[in-house]
Computed example of a mutant assay.
Amino acid sequence: MEAKSVWPELIGMPAEEAFQHIGAEFPEIEVHVVPDGSTVTMDFNEQRVRLFVKDGKVVREPRRG
């Protein structure tokens, strides 16, 4: 079975709750909370998920990379 790589169900969720959700499911993944519109590196990292947040809520589909 392939590891989960996207979390569309987290869009609109408070950032802290989404952070905990991914961490509970995959403790080995680094979860980064990033303000929406921020510049980020374009490197791919299977062990990273970025939560793009505006007004405290996830605004983009979180995905590995």
Results as ranks from 00 to 15, higher is better:
residue 10 L to N: 02
residue 14 P to T: 06
residue 21 H to L: 02
residue 43 D to Q: 04
residue 18 A to P: 04
residue 9 E to N: 13
residue 43 D to A: 12
residue 48 R to E: 08
residue 32 H to P: 00
residue 20 Q to K: 14
residue 31 V to K: 03
residue 27 P to T: 00
residue 4 K to A: 00
residue 31 V to Q: 08
residue 29 I to Q: 08
residue 57 K to I: 12
residue 59 V to T: 10
residue 6 V to K: 12
residue 39 T to N: 12
residue 42 M to Q: 11
residue 7 W to E: 07
residue 7 W to D: 05
residue 50 R to S: 10
residue 23 G to Y: 00
residue 35 P to W: 01
residue 2 E to T: 15
residue 48 R to A: 13
residue 15 A to N: 07
residue 47 Q to R: 15
residue 36 D to Q: 13
residue 53 V to Y: 05
residue 36 D to I: 05
residue 5 S to N: 13
residue 43 D to T: 15
residue 6 V to P: 02
residue 35 P to R: 00
residue 35 P to T: 09
residue 8 P to E: 04
residue 53 V to T: 04
residue 47 Q to A: 15
residue 44 F to L: 10
residue 52 F to H: 10
residue 46 E to Y: 07
residue 40 V to D: 02
residue 57 K to D: 00
residue 24 A to L: 14
residue 61 E to Y: 01
residue 23 G to M: 11
residue 9 E to R: 10
residue 1 M to Y: 02
residue 5 S to H: 12
residue 16 E to I: 11
residue 10 L to Y: 05
residue 16 E to Q: 14
residue 19 F to H: 09
residue 4 K to G: 00
residue 8 P to V: 07
residue 54 K to G: 02
residue 29 I to H: 11
residue 51 L to S: 06
residue 16 E to G: 08
residue 48 R to T: 14
residue 26 F to I: 09
residue 45 N to D: 15
residue 56 G to L: 04
residue 64 R to G: 02
residue 20 Q to N: 14
residue 64 R to M: 12
residue 6 V to N: 07
residue 58 V to I: 13
residue 46 E to K: 08
residue 38 S to I: 05
residue 49 V to G: 07
residue 4 K to I: 03
residue 30 E to W: 01
residue 19 F to R: 10
residue 60 R to M: 13
residue 20 Q to F: 07
residue 20 Q to I: 06
residue 50 R to M: 13
residue 35 P to S: 10
residue 43 D to L: 13
residue 24 A to Q: 15
residue 62 P to W: 06
residue 12 G to S: 07
residue 53 V to I: 09
residue 15 A to C: 06
residue 37 G to L: 03
residue 26 F to P: 00
residue 55 D to V: 03
residue 56 G to A: 01
residue 7 W to R: 00
residue 29 I to E: 05
residue 31 V to A: 09
residue 36 D to W: 08
residue 61 E to P: 04
residue 13 M to S: 06
residue 37 G to V: 05
residue 60 R to E: 15
residue 64 R to Q: 05
residue 61 E to S: 02
